[in-house]
């Protein structure tokens, strides 16, 4: 059983280890044996205008997506935790649906809808698509944040003279703050790494993954792609770890157990 587990893990993660290996390899061909250590592929990165502009596009899209899905997530999670209303379960199910829906389906159907509506696609349509798939993650994180707040805390604030709005800023927000940051970071990471929706819904401004894919056709550019991929993997791991750390700190602060979660 243990051997199978290791074989499974190696099969899954070995390719990711190869990425930095070839990124630092002093050769344009991606093959063993390794030729020598170099950082020139990393140095080349900022000199390619198409690449830097795609990075900028991706960061812009990921940031807006993160903010949008987190704001919508706050609304949905609060409604789901605090209020009872007709059709709550089906509505929440519908919001969580993109989690299990194949992305290609989401991408193609969004494209069809946008084109049928006569809208021209661009960064905004990628943002719409990404918000759709980030929402389930944002809601899951924020749901647990809201669940950990004793409803009496918000009532106590009202009782002590605060309005509903100032209660949100003085009590609710500080208590969900770690979850909020975690939601922002995870949505940002998902959007940054997402390919299929970005591929279908971006027009003249490719995102970073779309740009990377387009470069795969040119063998001489592969090592640069490897370098970029290495940076992306590191950034993703960093952001996710940060998100999880914050989420656990938030739970501890509220005196809850820190079992479970994404990592």
């Amino acid at each position: 059983m243990r051997a199978y587990t290791w074989a499974y893990l190696i099969f899954l993660y070995a390719p990711i280890v190869l990425l930095p290996l070839f990124a630092f390899n002093d050769s344009t061909t991606i093959a063993f044996p390794l030729q020598g250590f170099t950082t020139k592929w990393f140095v080349q990165l900022p000199t390619i205008p198409a690449l830097t502009s795609s990075v900028w596009t991706s960061v812009k899209i990921a940031s807006i997506t993160a903010v949008l899905s987190t704001i919508l997530g706050v609304c949905a999670a609060r409604a789901a935790v605090r209020y009872r209303f007709i059709g709550k379960r089906p509505i929440m199910g519908l919001i969580m649906l993109p989690l299990v829906l194949p992305e290609i389906i989401v991408a193609v159907s969004l494209l069809v809808v946008f084109l049928q509506l006569g809208l021209s696609i661009g960064s905004w349509s990628v943002i719409a698509g990404h918000t759709l798939i980030c929402m389930p993650f944002a809601i899951s994180i924020l749901n647990s944040s809201f669940q950990n707040i004793d409803p009496a805390l918000e009532e106590a604030s009202l009782d002590l003279g605060e309005t509903r709005v100032s209660t949100f800023y003085r009590v609710t927000l500080p208590l969900i703050w770690p979850g909020l940051i975690a939601s922002l970071l995870i949505s940002f990471t998902i959007s940054l790494d997402e390919f299929i929706i970005a591929f279908f819904l971006s027009s003249t401004e490719p995102t970073l993954p779309v740009y990377l894919w387009s470069q795969l056709r040119f063998p001489t550019k592969l090592p640069v792609v490897m370098a970029l991929g290495t940076l992306l993997v590191c950034l993703s791991i960093l952001l996710l770890a940060l998100a999880e750390t914050l989420r656990r700190r938030g739970l501890r602060k509220a005196g809850q157990s820190t079992e479970g979660g994404f990592l």
Binding site: L153, E155, A156, L158, D159, G161, K253
Partner: peptide, 29 residues
Amino acid sequence: PPNRRPTNMVFQSYAIFPHLNVAQNVAFG
């Protein structure tokens, strides 16, 4: 509304704000 009534409440769970210290809790209102 509750915030404008001349009443204050001690809740069953006490509802002490976990992100504030004792003095900040007492000074909340």
